[in-house]
């Protein structure tokens, strides 16, 4: 695998995570429990869409076939998407949205921290810039984990249920492919085992502080996104997101 090919795949993975999570959060806009949270969730959505634009633009550049951020976002099919299964899970209630956000924020935070030392100029600059945003996301979601987990009985039960649903989707965040190996050789990207260690050092203790227990999945952990095999949710997300540009492929917007 060439460096360009590996880099393209890696950028697509990061870009799709940001895009799909931003898309999910966008569904909340106007419907949150109070204005402050509406603004906060939209803020996170906006950051993620901004990151997706940078990453997909760079992916298109590296690929060298003239594809733009919009070509990559709107004209790829489900199996060509490489976002993690976690980010495509549905919003559910506010507890499920926060749980999904928290589990992903901690991952993204540590990943970007490492990427900000990348030997790749783009990744280094991108990570440094995005780390500021993601630090805020992580603070927001980890604060809400405490409030919901240690708030009322109802909020606790809802958050516990959310973690039970989402936990099996956390393992594949750290799954590596040929692309990771090629780029690790060049000091462009970190070993995801290292990110997993940092994530494991942070998440279980914060869950404990939030009075949430880690579910026993009897060894089952979901996987598939690295091969383009997603959950049933992604098809619907893309159907909604891509319908308009695909209905007029030649149009400019």
């Amino acid at each position: 695998m060439s460096t360009e090919e590996a880099l393209f795949q890696y950028l697509i993975r990061l870009g799709d995570n940001a895009l799909i999570l931003g898309q999910r959060l966008g569904e909340w806009c106007g419907h949150a429990h109070q204005l402050e949270s509406d603004i906060a969730l939209t803020n996170v959505a906006l950051d993620q869409i901004g990151q997706a634009r940078n990453l997909l633009t760079e992916a298109g550049r590296i690929e060298g076939k003239g594809r733009t951020e919009d070509d990559l976002a709107f004209f790829r099919s489900e199996m060509e998407f490489r976002n993690n299964l976690l980010v495509e899970q549905d919003n559910g209630d506010f507890a499920q949205t926060i749980a999904r956000q928290y589990l992903f924020d901690v991952f993204q935070f540590h990943l970007l921290t490492e990427l900000s030392r990348s030997s790749n100029e783009f990744l280094e600059a991108f990570a440094k810039k995005s780390l500021k945003e993601v630090s805020y996301h992580r603070k927001l979601s980890s604060d809400w984990m405490l409030r919901l987990g240690d708030g009322t009985e109802e909020s606790h039960n809802r958050l516990q249920q959310a973690i039970d649903i989402l936990w099996p989707y956390t393992a594949e965040l750290f799954e590596m492919t040929e692309a990771d190996k090629v780029l690790m050789e060049l000091d462009m990207v970190p070993d995801l085992k290292l990110i997993e260690q940092k994530w494991q050092a942070e998440v279980p203790s914060h869950l404990e502080e939030s009075r949430i227990r880690i579910p026993d999945t009897k060894g089952y952990m979901a996987r598939g996104s690295r091969d383009g095999h997603h959950t049933e949710y992604l098809g619907y997300i893309l159907a909604e997101m891509q319908a308009l540009p695909r209905s007029m492929p030649e149009a400019k917007w």
Partner: peptide, 8 residues
């Protein structure tokens, strides 16, 4: 639907 969040 936000009631339980505000209470929490």
């Amino acid at each position: 639907e936000g009631k339980w969040v505000r209470e929490a």
